[in-house]
Design a protein around this nucleic acid. Structure first.
Lengths: 196, 196
DNA sequence: GTCTATAGCGGGATAGAC
DNA sequence: GTCTATCCCGCTATAGAC
């Protein structure tokens, strides 16, 4: 382990995925470059290839980071002992916070919109993350049904898809309208639609 | 089937917006080039600048085309004398068809996801189209409420936003999962949520 | 209205020094 | 691990002939 050149950076790799994530959320996958990242981190763009030989590798690595972050988030929620209603609300709150005053959307939604231009392995990584979200939502719905908090219209998996799609679309349209109320109105109606 | 040639092209401008539209729907705004368009139309890329001096002009022109197409579609729906329920279903059917077997999404959703990389005037054009959709949806909901077909939970504008966001998100996730049932499940649940 | 030719820039990626 | 230097490519856009 060599001495870091820049004293204020602990982990270049995680800084890279963090900034790349932000750029995907704000501009999209095809609108940022290694040069953009290099300027933000104050390094040369060639250095980025040490961590991520190709941009595809960077995209995949970044999505895998989100997969781990989802694990951490889900465990943290578990520890709060919220009821299913509260867990669903925490999910909505997470995305409302991610929005950063209508400047960012979900990276998965961003990548899904550029689907046809993504390398297949990156598509697979995105898909795995979508599945993870939907499985978690299905679990929450299942528990909520048992607790009498949610209705039983259709399979939980279908309701999970409904929630997921609506949240993604709401984040995007909310940003385009520059109005976070848009997002909140959608989640309010989702809660209503799921009520027992 | 060969490419369109000079002989069977009636209107280069409309061919350009048509192909650019398709590419935005499949790959996104930042993932297609004038060269891509030139190859598809079998012309040289410099010729495209005659119609659209900049890519921004092309994007705006293409969205304005969609605005006109929305007018035409809405008038055609009017002529069918469908009840509000039927009009809403026609709206869903329109997007299911636009999906082209999970290869395309709504161009507005695509552009919304790349928001931070779009020129301001293109953002404005996109916003106008979103508004048009939501105003139409609000009108349908209003009539449907009067006819006792829809519930009156919240303002029609809020329900219109809910529908719009869910459709956009459903198209995108449907494609990522390569499963058009995904889209249909979401619209089914939307109908359920709106029921009187 | 479409062409050829090219300017000018920025993209991802690599080689090799340190 | 980060650097400099560089390659090759594709991009948007322009000039000017036809």
């Amino acid at each position: 382990m060599g001495r870091p050149t820049l004293a204020d950076r602990k982990d270049t790799r995680s800084e890279l995925t963090k900034v790349a994530l932000e750029m995907i959320q704000t501009k999209g996958y095809n609108a940022f470059s290694y040069n953009d990242l290099a300027e933000r981190l104050n390094i040369r763009k060639a250095s980025i290839h040490y961590y991520f030989p190709t941009k595809e590798d960077l995209g995949i690595g970044l999505i895998q980071d989100r997969l781990k972050a989802a694990d951490v988030w889900q465990k943290a929620i578990e520890d709060k002992n919220l009821d299913p209603q509260g867990q669903l609300q925490a999910y909505f709150d997470y995305f409302a916070g991610l929005s950063q005053n209508c400047t960012r959307i979900c990276p998965v939604g961003a990548l899904s919109s550029e689907w046809g231009s993504l390398p297949p392995k990156l598509q697979q990584a995105v898909n795995a993350l979508v599945k993870r979200h939907q499985v978690w939502l299905s679990g929450v719905l299942e528990k909520g049904r048992a607790a009498g908090q949610f209705n039983k219209k259709g399979a939980v998996e279908e309701q999970a898809q409904f929630i997921y799609a609506s949240v993604q679309g709401a984040l995007q349209t909310s940003r385009a309208q520059n109005n976070l109320d848009y997002f909140n109105q959608v989640t309010r109606q989702l809660r209503e639609a799921l009520k027992a």
